[in-house]
Nucleic acid binder design. Structure first.
Lengths: 215, 215
DNA sequence: ACAATTATTAACCGAACGGTCAACGCCCGT
DNA sequence: ACGGGCGTTGACCGTTCGGTTAATAATTGT
């Protein structure tokens, strides 16, 4: 066990460590892991550069810690808030909580997107986070899809894509949208559209077989 | 006009320049712009490092050139292949050609995703590329959506998200899929699902008003 | 009060970075 | 045969990188 790992356990809530984490979250999201230097982070956090290595062994260790926190929070946010109600109601609740988390943790998606392209060890964490959401969708859709679990994975990645892409492409959507795509009214419009999409998909699942051949 | 810009015009098809472009495409896609050094690129291309600055003024200029090529190719790929047929048929054709391009130009999406997070000038190119695809979707869906152009932008980003996300998350989908998500059979399964989604959405557009309030 | 532990700092390190430059081989028109 | 571009090279430059270290300030247990 390294010094920094031991430090994590004891002094989790240290003020300087928190400032470093916050600064690193922002910078990794803005420019990506490789484009951010430890000097950048320490300067924004207002602490000495060496402190970063005191609390987190390496620059990569800092990212690791950040992703860990986010995945934990994401898993908690997707914990069954109301396991009552119809599949349709629970599906809408799932999408809503997914959207809420994205809006409340803006750097999260950007860091994940960056991590997706650089083949680091962080991908294994992403996998386990994904598995959780997949399980939830499987619970909801598995019983009602025509051939059970075979196609749930398709719906899973489709739902995730519908939610994620809007935030992912927000920096360049301003040419199509009026004003900031992340403004309150535009986020509301997006929410309405997504819930409409969920309903159309669930309608289709109840009346059709997704196994048709089109081309 | 810089030396390298002049060079681009004259000796576009130079063998060494092409080797550099190819190596850079691969590496930028694998690790992202910031994580790749010009030494990495020149080594994979098998040429001297200084040649990179001879043909492209800077490392950023090289990325610029690559994106330029890809956007040109993407625009061409989405050119109206068959403007005949019903909205439904043309919509399926659009999704098909989008999928084709993604499968044929693997580094493209990865480079774009990286560019999306780093606020470089390259974003303006991304915007113009986006506008083209949006115009196409607008032609197809505008006339049949209940309140015209107001919601087309929502469908646009939704369709794009459905197509893109699968490739974007491919590196971590292997835990949910069996085998490589990019294998021929798995790509075929994804295509079928997407065409089914398109049909369900078009069904909904013809019978419903997307303006309902759900929350 | 004081020793021990913890937190913080400035100075420093070798390596790698993007980029420059003078020179060299090579082909080609004359 | 030879002079002039073009393509190519290795050696070099200043800067910045992630990371270390020894010393010091602050806090804590007794």
């Amino acid at each position: 066990m390294s010094k920094a790992e031991a430090r994590e356990g004891k002094k989790e809530g240290n003020a300087s460590a928190e400032k470093i984490l916050q600064a690193a979250k922002e910078l990794f999201a803005e420019r990506g892991f490789a484009a951010v230097s430890v000097r950048d982070i320490s300067e924004r956090a207002g602490v000495n550069k060496a402190l970063l290595f005191y609390y987190f062994d390496t620059k990569a260790g800092l990212l690791h810690r950040i992703l860990e926190q986010y995945y934990q929070a994401h898993a908690a946010a997707l914990a069954p808030p109301a396991s009552e109600g119809s599949t349709r109601v629970r599906m809408h609740a799932l999408v809503t909580s997914y959207l809420d988390f994205m809006e409340d943790h803006h750097p999260y998606l950007q860091i994940v997107q960056h991590e997706l392209q650089s083949n680091t060890e962080g991908l294994s964490m992403l996998r386990s986070g994904m598995r959780l959401l997949f399980t939830r969708v499987e619970e909801l859709l598995g019983p009602i899809t025509s051939d059970g679990h075979l196609h749930v994975r398709q719906f899973y990645i489709s739902f995730a894509g519908l939610v994620i892409t809007y935030f992912n492409y927000a920096p360049v959507l301003d040419v199509i949208w009026e004003g900031d795509p992340l403004s309150a009214s535009n986020r509301r419009e997006r929410r309405q559209h997504l819930h409409w999409m969920v309903d159309r998909i669930l309608d289709g699942l109840q009346t059709c077989n997704p196994d048709q051949d089109i081309g």
